[in-house]
Design a protein around this nucleic acid. Structure first.
Lengths: 241, 241
DNA sequence: AAGTGGTCTAGACCACTAT
DNA sequence: TAGTGGTCTAGACCACTTC
């Protein structure tokens, strides 16, 4: 059944992804774009948009003049770094069934980095929410989210703090997350973080330092996250720009 | 002067990028797509392709119904993680003038990880090239590249080892790099690596473990890289997929 | 209501690969 | 030479924001 929303491109992409997963293409060869277009009853442009996105994800590769092929190496990529939107989803993509625990919640004056990153005034307060994501009782991710308290128009947000942060923001503020600007920072786990992740103090870890912006391009959240490298490793594809 | 190659899309993208850098748009507002199209004498599709790529890079943001705007926060991104192609370019993007030193070159039997990653046979050998990238005498990056010796058809490659690896491969093999599949791995610098990067032993660092594939999707190089976090930090944009 | 970006079409022509 | 993916066009219609 072909409808709008999700877009035709998204439907074509999902369809092809399914057929790739089912190993439905002989020799890993995907049919020509014109054939896909007429088979699916859409324009070649729509097919090409879907194929471009699958290529970006590493699911296929294309060779001009030769054809389009399944990329068996791309299957290693469970979640693409630049498309991460919630850590719940990341863990699910890795085959985990995550549980989330709120391990801390405070309202305080912001630290200097947060004050600067969120462009706050001297008297503004921030709500800090600290969460641990676990798989089978093993902690995998620790996140610290800081949101200006003035944005939380709905005072009754405490019960909702375990929901994914983008959803929490949509529910309890009048903003919505558009994108994150992230830094990849290497750390040795300090005593407090190590204990929360149940790892030895000093274990090398990757952390993300990021600021989330809304649709008007205003900063609305600063997040810091730590990851257990033994349980979760980030992969990505790099191409010539 | 409008020609093909670079493509129209690339020319439009470069043109707009320049105007953004020159701060030529009042209030950060970029003209409507239809206006850009007629001004530049190209179709709206071409303009939209260019704008989409600039949005991906974080240079602009778009709001349906409202318009297209310069993203002042995007200027923080010197080089996008998923578009890195040579570390020379990364350092130049950060305003450095890098110099490259080959600090080691061997031909040996591959270690087990390399053997597996490059799908080698038991008797195959690999050429290992180790390089340090410096800025103003400070080491910033250490890379180790491993290439099957059988691919190096040209025996006289030794003098070329300081050139960027993708160029080295194009010159001295019959293959060309198409993309890398990369893992982000946290490490504490061991004695040898620390000494090459002139940092204390045990310093936390980000490293990349990656395999490069050619246009036929065969693995042709395995690379491991270490970065000085105090001199070079990777940034990226994360969006909803 | 007017104007913006988002999606989709049908078709042309080019560049490259296979045979 | 035939067939593939790559680029580009002109235009239609939709969804959303702004006034």
């Amino acid at each position: 059944m072909i409808t709008r929303n999700p877009s035709l491109t998204d439907q074509v992409k999902a369809h092809l992804k399914q057929r790739i997963a089912d190993d439905a293409f002989d020799d890993g060869r995907i049919p020509p774009e014109t054939e896909l277009a007429s088979d699916l009853g859409v324009s070649r442009t729509t097919v090409r948009d879907a194929l471009s996105r699958l290529e970006q994800e590493g699911a296929i590769y294309r060779r001009q003049g030769a054809g389009t092929f399944v990329n068996e190496h791309g299957l290693q990529i469970k979640s693409r770094l630049e498309e991460i939107w919630s850590y719940e989803q990341v863990l699910e993509d890795h085959g985990y069934e995550p549980s989330v625990t709120v391990v801390g919640e405070t309202i305080d004056a912001p630290d200097p980095v947060t004050l600067e990153a969120l462009a706050l005034g001297p008297d503004d307060l921030v709500v800090t929410i600290e969460k641990v994501f676990r798989e089978d009782d093993e902690p995998v991710i620790l996140t610290i989210n800081r949101i200006p308290s003035q944005l939380l128009v709905d005072g009754d947000y405490a019960a909702d703090e375990a929901t994914p942060i983008y959803e929490f923001i949509e529910r309890h503020t009048e903003r919505a997350l558009s994108y994150y600007l992230s830094e990849i920072v290497p750390v040795a786990l300090d005593a407090e973080t190590a204990s929360k992740l149940e790892m030895p103090v000093g274990t090398p870890a990757v952390s993300f330092e990021e600021v989330g912006f809304d649709h008007a391009n205003d900063p609305i959240v600063r997040a810091t996250s730590y990851f257990r490298d033994d349980l979760l490793r980030f992969r990505l594809i790099r191409r010539r720009s």
